[in-house]
Simulated scan of single mutants.
Amino acid sequence: MSRTLFIADLHLCQEEPAITAGFLHFLQREAPHCDALYILGDLFEAWIGDDDPNPLHQQIAQALRALPIPTFFIHGNRDFLLGQRFARASGMTLLPEEQVLECYGHRVLIMHGDTLCTDDTGYQNFRAKVHKRWLQRLFLALPLRLRQRIAGKMRAGSKQANQHKSISIMDVNLQAVESTMLRQQVKTLIHGHTHRPAIHQFALQTQPAQRAVLGAWHEEGSMIQLDANGIQLIRFPF
């Protein structure tokens, strides 16, 4: 059966070996039996540059490169600095933050999803700053050890800030969802980021539409399968 798989929000790091093992198992057993794999951001918990000699990064790159299928990547809010050097090492194709696919008779928009959370103005302001090219180039030019310290402080600050935010503020804004889908002329959207896996059915200018949200890989795997019959959200043990 022809099918395409989508995953997001694995947040791979050395401190969570079970998630890494689950992902490697997925790459060996599940991913080879599909037409393509799309990773919709936050594959890694943090990314401070392609020159980081973290052995986990090398392990993941080798496992991805071994896949007999095309693999694509959209940056997340945790790994938006992932660059062409790692993409080449892993055999992945980097995509823009919004990508429309034509698959099995379906027109689907895929994205990480953080740009849809417009109610979280603090995050959106932060995102606008760190996505400035000159600032990224400046950060990547810093010594690796200094980048590690800065990234650690930023993660701690983000975690503390999120503790004081309501769940609704950190979720997508439905008007942002609708305007984005209308702009891209799609009736189906797949994204991650919010860690709230579900398939939402709604009306988009009186037409049926759907928004599929991937789950984070905390205690189990999460993927969306797209085939001729449509989309399916699948959870599975590591």
Rank of each mutant, 00 (worst) to 15 (best):
A63F: 12
I60C: 02
Q58N: 14
L101F: 15
S90R: 02
L116R: 08
P55S: 11
A63H: 06
T121W: 04
H106S: 03
G113D: 08
I74Y: 02
G91W: 08
V100I: 15
H106D: 00
L81S: 07
C103Y: 00
F86S: 04
L116I: 12
L64K: 01
Y104N: 09
C117I: 06
Y123E: 10
F72W: 09
N77M: 12
G122C: 10
H57Q: 08
D120Y: 03
Q124S: 11
G122V: 12
R107D: 06
D79T: 03
C117S: 08
H106I: 05
G91A: 04
C117R: 07
V108F: 02
L109V: 12
D119E: 09
G91L: 12
T121H: 10
G91R: 08
Q99N: 14
P70I: 00
P68F: 00
D114K: 13
L95Q: 02
E97C: 04
F73C: 07
D120G: 06
P70Y: 07
P55A: 04
P96M: 14
R88S: 12
E97N: 13
R85G: 06
T93W: 01
A61W: 03
E97H: 15
R107Q: 11
Q62R: 13
L101K: 12
Q58A: 15
A87L: 10
T93R: 07
T71A: 15
T121A: 12
Q58L: 11
L67P: 08
G91I: 00
H57S: 13
T115R: 11
V100P: 10
D120R: 05
P96R: 11
S90V: 07
G105P: 10
E97D: 15
A87D: 00
